[in-house]
Every structure is written in structure tokens, then in C-alpha cells.
Design a protein around this nucleic acid. Structure first.
Lengths: 113, 113
DNA sequence: ACAGTAGTTAAGCAATTCGTTAACTATTGC
DNA sequence: GCAATAGTTAACGAATTGCTTAACTACTGT
């Protein structure tokens, strides 16, 4: 259920440009043009990236004071929470018991290319 | 620096099949054929996915007792740690001060489509 | 009404990735 | 040595992305 959401989140984050957008938005909300300038991307390309991020629920549009043309984007919390949840599940792999198994296996089968 | 590593990790995780592989390996190490069977993928396709995961450092090959033909795969810790680190950075966006700013903006500009 | 600004949508091509089938490597067991 | 098993590599068409230019929407200021 949240499975699909995490897939969408990871797909959105897989692109370096989109990840750079997230890194910029993590400081403060920014407008599309600002993002395009700072990442040296054309306006259309940025618009396309923003759509992927918006559709994936990672960002949302907010209004900007005094100018209805300008749209500003802000990070949304949920997808990052969901991703963190998944990551925590994965990291259970390294829980104490499995660690001992891992070390056992490592000792046993060490020394191959 | 770890930037590139996180990019590679996210690129590897972006594919649903590869994420499913991670979800299986998170319970215990498995062989390539096992993974292919459980996810109903052809052996070559699985091999290709495993290569992406291996190149991205998300999994590693381990030997299997008694049969040098069989390769088993296990999760590697580092990429997940790096991803978690990045996620934690992003989540600083929602620190207390910024929350108050966010709520302010929300109150001010509410009520648009 | 008109020119300018901010941004998105459309259309199209190049580059990448997906998933096949076929060929190949390496190992086991007879 | 030979057949069978486990898996990877090669080659190739189909489907997806990446990025561009051009056209379009919507608002602003005069």
C-alpha cells in the first residue's frame, strides 16, 4: 500500500537533477525559475522535473505574495517519512542476531574474489 | 562526495524489481535463481538487475557451501546508511523554526486551487 | 489593448533502459 | 569426457526518458 508510494518516491529521487531540486528546497521554498537558474536547466526541463516531483507528492505548490504568476514550491513531508520507514525496515537486516550469522558466514567463506 | 554514492543508490532502488530484490534479501541472503523464481523474472533479467545492485554497492556476492556454481547475495550496509544520512538532512527542513514559517505561509496564502 | 514576464504544454528526436532469446563460462556428477 | 545445472554476457527490438525548440496560458503594468 505504502509500497507503491515508496516506488514513486524513489523513481522521483533517482534523477540527479530532481535530487538537486530537493536539496535546494530543503533550505527554503523556491520558485521554478530560481531552481532552473541555480541548476542551469532550461525552464521547460525544470517544469518537467517539477511535475514528476509534484505527481510523486514530494513537493507542493504554494502561492507567492503579490504575484499570482509566480508559483513557489515547498517540500512535502509524507514521502520522506514513508521512505524512512522503508529504510528502517531494511536496516533491520543488521539486527543483532543476523549480525552473528553474517560474521559466521564471513569467517567461513572468506578469501574469494 | 557521498553525493554520487547516494545518486547511485537511488538509481539502483528506483526500479521496482530491484527494490523487491532488496525486500527479499532483507530477510536472508539468497541465490540468483531463487530471486528470479520468487519475482517471476527471467534469469538474464535478474542477472542484469543484480549487476546494477552490485555495481551500486547495495549487495555483495558471497559463496555458498558445497557448490561453487551457486552465488548468493547479501545486503551491504553502507549505501543504506548514506541514504539515511541524506534523508535526515532533508528532514531538517521540518525543524521547529521552519515549521513556524510554514504555518505562517499556509495561513496567509490558503485557499487556492 | 499591448508588451513583457513566469511558467507550462506540445512535439519530436536522441539516448538510455527493459526484457527477450541465444550463446557462453564454470562447476558438478556420472 | 559428457550431460546437466547455475549463472552471466551478447545482441537486439520495444518502450521510456532526457532535453530541445516552439507554441501556449495567465497574469502585470502601462
Amino acid at each position: 500500500m505504502t509500497q507503491r508510494a515508496v516506488d514513486a518516491t524513489l523513481a522521483a529521487l533517482a534523477d540527479p537533477a530532481r535530487r538537486a531540486v530537493i536539496d535546494l528546497l530543503r533550505r527554503r521554498p523556491r520558485r521554478a525559475g530560481e531552481l532552473a537558474d541555480e541548476l542551469a536547466l532550461s525552464a521547460p526541463r525544470m517544469s518537467q522535473h517539477l511535475r514528476v516531483l509534484r505527481d510523486g507528492g514530494l513537493i507542493e505548490e504554494i502561492a507567492v505574495e503579490d504575484d499570482a504568476r509566480a508559483r513557489s514550491y515547498r517540500l512535502r513531508r509524507e514521502p520522506f517519512n514513508a521512505l524512512r520507514g522503508w529504510l528502517e525496515d531494511v536496516e533491520q537486516f543488521w539486527s543483532a542476531q543476523l549480525d552473528s550469522f553474517k560474521e559466521h558466514a564471513e569467517r567461513k567463506y572468506r578469501g574469494r574474489s
